[in-house]
């Protein structure tokens, strides 16, 4: 496989967040991730999918197998067309929340992945990409 398998899921309801978790789990386990690595990736996916639903007004998840040289991984991209994040630095801080959360989701997702990237600007939506390698 050349690393082009990908799956897209829309996130517009609370059960959709669960479907994203299940799809990420399925791919991670097929690729051979350990239970602990699966759990870390799925937990990060859950945080990002929920953020897209709550703050972004819904969005899209793209789940793909990634191949880089001899490395294999899972890449998850969560995209929304919501209001965007004004201060990304701040949003990544533990304990910072503009909602009623604990403010752990974004920073936690970063800690739970090997690669992490946020693209966001006010009025332009938010895209978060994470990768975890096998």
């Amino acid at each position: 496989m050349s690393g082009n398998e990908h799956l897209q899921l829309s996130i517009s309801t609370e059960p959709d967040v669960v479907y994203v978790r299940q799809a990420v789990r399925k791919l991670a386990s097929e690729i051979g991730f350990s239970l602990i690595d699966q759990t870390k990736l799925v937990t990060a996916a859950s945080e990002l999918a929920r953020n897209a639903l709550i703050y972004g007004g819904g969005g899209m998840a793209t789940i793909e197998k990634k191949q880089q040289g001899t490395r294999t991984g899972v890449c998850l991209t969560i995209q929304d067309q919501g209001p965007g994040i004004e201060n990304i630095e701040k949003a990544l801080e533990d304990g910072y929340s503009t909602g009623s959360g604990l403010g752990l989701g974004l920073g936690g997702a970063r800690r739970l992945s090997n690669e992490f990237e946020v693209k966001s600007a006010p009025g332009e939506g938010t895209t978060v990409s994470i990768t975890r390698w096998l």
């Binding site: 699966q38 870390k40 752990l104 920073g107 936690g108 800690r111």
Partner: peptide, 14 residues
């Protein structure tokens, strides 16, 4: 709580 869940919780920061 499954061990994998406990380990992940710590990294999440909970």
């Amino acid at each position: 709580m499954q061990p994998a869940v406990a380990i992940t919780l710590v990294e999440l920061g909970l």
